[in-house]
Design a protein around this nucleic acid. Structure first.
Length: 753
DNA sequence: GCGGATCAC
DNA sequence: TATGGTGATCCGC
């Protein structure tokens, strides 16, 4: 009894402040040691004190809950149990295993982008952010306990070698756009929507973790075949092809961006999200669509892994000795007496492995806000003028989206980290700076007055608008996809009056990219009779990269491709690994020597040979002529892009805090992209030092000499040329004709300046 | 409708 | 020296 309060307090504190190792790449760390450092760094700070306070509040909630629990009678429990069972049956009946949901997640996105663009970062623990706050960290840093949402100065204590790179949001946005273009190829919105109800949707978030979610109906299967819900007959075929589609998609992402993505495939969104974490980084996991598999998967899954269960909910559940999802099921009766109806509903669904099987159509924005953190601000005049500034910025943002709202909220955080919000709702919707400020100013004044004679000591101020009135004036100018999503928001899955929708295509399903690519390779495989190469590395379950067919017959080619996943765990040099000893490998397709130690490079070489061969074949078949100009254009675009990104990096930063910590000397400056400068007036560039010198390489697609001796770079060039062609071709068949896919990103980068 | 809190990214 | 910004949702008034 005596030590009980102390213990709960300590644990409580830890649960709030301690390392959250829920993230991928953080397994098996020395938590005690890390937590000690975190505590030592935090203790005594205002932040710490506030966390402590909040934690005590949570503890009180738990106490209250435990008290409630103690007062529950057997009769109540029994009744609840009956209810739960009824509910379970109903939910079970609603289980839908017929959908396939793919959740794709970029691996350590921001960090990966920075590593891609700065060779020296690749081998270092690094994070994106500032001394005050980190957005994300790479996997090397995670081994030290360094993770997102951790202040940089603490991270530095955990790992003194940590390199902190300031964020380049414009760059990340540009990369997001590139990736989105790939998703667009799989986005069945661009497919004619069949009358089948199982439509597919791609949803893309541009956040730290780019997390698109893809609904897919069985690709490639004849329309009729699909109707057999849950029937396992076609399911295997189905599963295989979906996995390949996802591999293909991830492969394309890596080709295009040199970044890796992970994916989860499952019958619903909740599970897919968990699955995407399972083989992170650079992996994917498919949960078979059977009740058994799902329940098995759920069994030992910690509740904290479920989206929506955060540290507070976790702690409350833990107090009831619920740590795993299976416990949720076992304790549902109790939970139904302690938690709200919505919470219970959610718990129950989780315990049954159920989740959303459809994505709510693009929902209307419900609020828009802006907030800023700063050093202590106590002067009322300054506070008012800051408030005005915020209102001005918010009004601008509102204008961009043509929004008007009735509710204005003011958010204040004082230097003790205590947060307060004050709101007022008007009769009419407003949007202009003056209108917003008129309200916000009053709210602020009230708070200042309440505090007098003491000043408000603020560290954050924010203004939010909500209660928007619906405005229909923007609909006509919507782009295709948005227009579609909008029209679908009624809940019905019909397409109403979508202008770019072409009903003539409704009956002929488009082949997805992966299908085409696979067909190409298959065709090629037959025609080239690729000779065997000695297998390298073990065949992991993640293998079979995009080509089960090749695997079946030759085996050898895919074996090499598979080696992507045969890399040692922990380190994933999947794009441009540089090892010590160069090696001569013989390409089974073109029989030429490839000098490299990096199997990925070799893989790409083979891939490109295969692609080239099939491209040539197709050319002669369909007399389609590849547009050389386009390829040249692309090279130029890439040059520009590189130049811009260099300029971006070299531009002087205002404050000392924002100066780049990346230890680049400037002389090597992102070798990968620089080599694309061949066509322009730039001088030849440095290559990766581990590569041997090779003679000039000529791109077999655009026939331009590439002044590089780095095969990875050369291959990437060729891939891009090829990709562009495929995409070009794809576009010809689809209704989305808005933007060229490959080159576009370059201009987005330019915008940052 | 308001305000505090939780959660995700 | 130093612990973010944006949007959503829920719960209890």
């Amino acid at each position: 009894m005596d030590n009980e309060p102390a213990q709960t307090k300590d644990e409580g504190f830890l649960s709030r402040m301690a390392l959250n190792d829920n993230k991928a790449g953080m397994e098996g760390l020395d938590r005690d040691k890390i937590n000690n450092i975190i505590m030592e760094s935090s203790k005594g700070s205002k932040f710490y004190e506030n966390e402590l306070k909040k934690d005590q509040q949570v503890n009180q909630r738990i106490e209250k809950m435990m008290l409630q629990k103690a007062n529950i009678t057997q009769a109540q429990l029994k009744k609840a149990q009956a209810q739960v069972e009824k509910m379970t049956l109903a939910l079970e009946r609603s289980r839908d295993l017929s959908r396939v949901i793919v959740h794709v997640d970029m691996d350590a996105f921001y960090a990966a982008v920075e590593m891609r663009d700065c060779a020296e970062l690749k081998t270092k623990p690094m994070a994106v952010g500032s001394m005050s706050m980190l957005s994300t960290s790479n996997y090397l840093a995670r081994k030290y306990g360094v993770r997102a949402a951790m202040p940089g100065f603490i991270a530095k204590k955990l790992c003194s070698d940590l390199v902190i790179v300031p964020p380049n949001f414009d760059k990340y946005r540009a990369v997001s756009d590139e990736i989105r273009e790939i998703f667009a190829d799989y986005d069945p919105h661009f497919l004619p929507m069949s009358l089948d109800e199982k439509h597919s949707i791609v949803k893309v978030n541009i956040d730290e973790d780019l997390s698109p979610i893809l609904f897919k109906e069985s690709p490639g299967s004849p329309p009729g075949l699909d109707g057999s819900k849950g029937a396992n007959g076609g399911s295997e075929l189905f599963g295989t092809s979906v996995e390949e589609a996802v591999r293909e998609m991830r492969f394309r992402i890596e080709q295009k961006t040199m970044l890796t993505a992970s994916a989860g495939i499952a019958p619903n969104m909740m599970l897919a999200k968990v699955c995407s974490d399972k083989n992170k980084p650079n992996g994917q996991y498919r949960l078979p669509p059977t009740r058994e598999a799902v329940m098995d998967f759920i069994q030992d899954l910690p509740v904290r892994k479920i989206c929506g269960i955060g540290k507070v909910s976790e702690k409350m559940l833990n107090a009831l000795e619920i740590t795993k999802c299976s416990h949720l099921g076992q304790q549902m009766a109790l939970l139904s007496l302690l938690f709200s109806e919505t919470a219970c509903q959610n718990f129950m669904e989780v315990s049954l492995g159920l989740g959303s099987t459809r994505i709510s159509r693009h929902e209307e924005r419900k609020s828009m806000s802006i907030e800023r953190t700063f050093k202590e601000l106590s002067d009322a005049e300054e506070q008012f003028s800051l408030c005005r500034e915020l209102c001005k910025d918010l009004a601008e943002d509102m204008k961009k989206e043509g929004l008007k709202g009735k509710t204005v909220s003011l958010k204040l955080k004082n230097v003790n980290f205590e947060v307060k919000t004050r709101a007022q709702t008007l009769q009419c919707a407003v949007a202009a700076e003056e209108e917003i400020f008129a309200v916000a100013k009053d709210l602020l004044k009230t708070e200042i007055d309440n505090e007098s004679p003491h000043p408000l000591k603020l560290r954050l101020m924010g203004v939010r608008m909500s209660a928007f009135v619906s405005s229909d004036d923007k609909a006509p100018t919507q782009k295709s996809i948005l227009g579609f999503l909008k029209s679908g928001s009624s809940g019905s899955s019909e397409i109403k009056g979508e202008p770019s929708y072409n009903p003539s295509q409704a009956s002929q399903p488009m082949q997805s990219f992966f299908q085409r690519a696979q067909a190409k390779r298959l065709q090629l495989h037959v025609s080239t009779e690729a000779r065997g190469i000695s297998p390298i590395g073990a065949c992991s379950k993640e293998s079979a990269l995009s080509s089960a067919a090749l695997n079946k017959t030759g085996g050898s080619v895919s074996q090499v491709l598979e080696n992507k996943r045969a890399a040692p765990a922990g380190d994933h040099p999947s794009t441009s690994g540089c090892e010590a000893r160069p090696q001569i490998l013989i390409c089974p397709v073109c029989s030429s020597k490839v000098e490299t130690t990096d199997l990925n490079v070799f893989n790409r070489h083979i891939d490109l040979c295969l692609n080239v061969a099939s491209t040539n074949q197709k050319k002669s078949e369909s007399e389609s002529v590849y547009d050389e100009k386009k390829c040249l254009q692309e090279c130029k675009e890439l040059n520009k892009r590189k130049e811009r990104s260099e300029a971006e990096e070299e531009q002087p930063f205002g404050s000392k805090e924002s100066s780049r910590v990346c230890p680049r000397g400037g002389q090597h400056g992102g070798s990968i992209q620089k080599v694309f400068l061949t066509q322009s007036d730039s001088k030849p560039t440095t290559s990766q030092k581990c590569q041997g010198k090779l003679s000039d390489l000529v791109c077999p697609v655009c026939h331009l000499t590439q002044e590089t001796d780095d095969l990875a770079v050369f291959n990437r060039h060729v891939d891009l040329c090829l990709n562009q062609e495929v995409l070009h071709e794809l576009k010809g068949q689809t209704t989305f004709s808005q933007n060229p896919s490959v080159v576009k990103n370059s201009k987005n980068i330019g915008k940052s300046q």
